[in-house]
Amino acid sequence: MQLTLFWIFSLLMILFALGVVSLRSPISCALSLVGSFLALAALFVTLDAFFIGIIQVLVAAGAVMVLFLFIIMLLNLQAEERRPVKLSAMVGAGAIIFCFIKLLAEVIAASPLLSRPIPLLQETATNDIAMIGTTLFRSFNLPFQIIGVLLLVATVGVVLLSRRTLK
């Protein structure tokens, strides 16, 4: 059951991700990204990581992407013009992607991770919020603080770069 769900949601996620790259209208791109995030959230839920799944829906798919959509609509962006596709660029990109996927397939085939039985998780994830909280604030306190600095710098940067022009 879990495996079936995994395949369904991963395929959905990849399909939506392809949509983000290949669709021309910015709104369809953003909506595909929402779809991809939702599928990812579903994957987390199948792994019993309920909290991360819900946060993924609420924050990434909900808050962030809705804001994104608003901005796209406010800016009234038009669909990208269909430029003639450069053959050389397409061939190059295709070759790189093909090589990467081939390499990945070989690595996965050679890796013992598939044949090794994977132990079940020790803790039951019934109280995963508390677990995440302790991990984040106790063991991962230092990186957590640095993320705080990162967010501050990002805020300062946004204010700086979005300043109104003097004309």
Binding site: F140, L142, P143, I146, V153, G157
Partner: peptide
């Protein structure tokens, strides 16, 4: 690796802003 990633990202964000100044 987590520390590495987090500090590297913090640096990158500063640089994005500074380069586009």
């Amino acid at each position: 690796f987590i520390m590495l990633f987090v500090s590297l990202e913090c640096l990158s964000i500063v640089l994005y802003v500074a380069i586009t100044y």
